[in-house]
C-alpha cells in the first residue's frame, strides 16, 4: 500500500555553516542520511534544527559548506532538480486559500509537471494518511490533525526519495502522533531517506534509526538512539536531569528535574 521508492538517495551535509544577520546559526555541521533510514534531529529550542532542515531541503542556501545529494552539491542543481530529489514540510504550512484537500496534495506534484498517474498518486497519498474521506473538504475547515495528515500526503505524493519534515508531530494528539510516525517509518522502510525534526525524545527513540543532537548550531552527538539518548548528553543539551528506561530497543524518556546551567 505504500508508495515504493522509485529512486534512492544519500544526502550529506559537509562543513555546513549558516549565518543570519551577524548571528551564526549553524557551524561545521557534518552528517549523512541514507536510504531506508529514519533520522531524527533533536535539540532544544533555537538549537538550529529548523535551519539544518532548511539547508538540507534547499530552502536556505548555506553560508559555508555544502549539501550533497547523491554526491552532487545541491547548489549546483537547478531548483527544480533539487525539488524532485527532496520534499520538505515546514514547521507551519497554512494554506492561504481554502483549497480542497486533494488540490492541496496535488501541489506536491508541482516539481514533476503533469504526471500520467497524477490522480492515482493523489488518491494513493490520501489513502496512505487515511484522509480520503475529506479529500474534497476545504483545508481551512479541517482540524489540526486532519490538516497535518493532508500536509503529509502533500509531502509524499511526489517521487522525491528524500523526505524532510520539521516537527510534524507538533500539536497532534498521541494517536495522530503515533499514526504519523508509523507512516514515516514505513516510508523509510520502503527505501526513502527520511529526516524529521522532533521534540518528543520517546518517539525519536522508538521510531528512528539515527538521532542527531544539536546544540547552539553545532552537532553535539549523532548515532543510534542508544548512543545519543543518554542522561549525560541530554543533560548537557537541555539542562534537565533525566533517565531512559530501555526495553527491547524502545526507550521511556522520563525528565526528572532542571539542572543548574553551568556558567559560560
Amino acid at each position: 500500500m505504500s508508495i515504493a521508492a522509485e529512486q534512492t538517495i544519500e544526502a550529506a551535509c559537509i562543513e555546513l555553516g549558516l549565518e543570519r544577520g551577524r548571528k551564526s546559526v549553524l557551524r561545521g555541521i557534518h552528517c549523512a542520511f541514507k536510504p531506508f533510514e529514519l533520522t531524527a534531529v533533536v535539540g532544544p529550542n533555537g538549537a538550529g534544527k529548523s535551519s539544518l532542515l532548511q539547508c538540507l531541503s534547499g530552502v536556505q542556501n548555506p553560508s559555508s559548506g555544502r549539501v550533497e545529494l547523491n554526491g552532487v552539491a545541491s547548489g549546483q542543481m537547478t531548483a527544480a532538480q533539487r525539488a524532485r530529489l527532496g520534499a520538505f514540510l515546514p514547521q507551519s504550512e497554512t494554506p492561504a486559500w481554502s483549497l480542497s484537500a486533494a488540490d492541496m496534495v496535488a501541489l506536491g506534484l508541482l516539481p514533476w509537471g503533469r504526471l500520467p498517474d497524477r490522480e492515482q498518486r493523489i488518491q494513493q497519498a490520501l489513502l496512505l494518511v487515511d484522509a480520503q474521506e475529506f479529500a474534497e473538504r476545504p483545508v481551512t475547515q479541517l482540524s489540526g490533525g486532519e490538516l497535518r495528515r493532508v500536509q503529509l500526503a502533500r509531502l509524499l505524493v511526489g517521487r522525491a526519495p528524500l523526505l524532510i519534515a520539521d516537527e510534524p508531530t507538533a500539536a497532534l494528539d498521541i494517536r495522530h502522533q503515533l499514526q504519523l510516525m508509523q507512516n514515516f517509518r514505513s516510508l523509510a522502510d520502503s527505501g526513502k531517506t527520511v529526516v524529521l525534526a522532533l521534540h518528543d525524545l520517546s518517539l525519536a527513540a522508538r521510531f528512528c534509526d539515527r538521532i542527531l543532537l544539536i546544540l547552539d548550531g553545532e552537532m553535539l552527538a549523532q548515532g543510534t538512539p542508544q548512543e545519543v539518548l543518554t542522561p549525560a548528553l541530554i543533560g548537557e543539551a537541555y539542562g534537565v536531569s533525566c533517565e531512559f528506561r530501555w526495553r527491547d530497543g524502545v526507550a521511556d524518556f522520563v525528565p526528572l528535574d532542571l539542572l543548574r546551567k553551568s556558567s559560560g
Binding site: 532548511q54 531541503s57 534547499g58 530552502v59 537547478t78 531548483a79 527544480a80 533539487r82 525539488a83 524532485r84 527532496g86 520534499a87 520538505f88 514540510l89 515546514p90 507551519s92 504550512e93 497554512t94 494554506p95 492561504a96 486559500w97 483549497l99 492541496m104 501541489l107 506536491g108 508541482l110 516539481p111 502533500r154 524532510i164
Partner: peptide, 16 residues
C-alpha cells in the same frame, strides 16, 4: 500555486 502553501514550501517545491 506553490505559494498557496507559504514561502518555505514554495521554495522547497522548486520556486526558490
Amino acid at each position: 500555486r506553490a505559494l498557496a502553501l507559504g514561502e518555505d514550501s514554495a521554495a522547497s517545491l522548486g520556486f526558490q
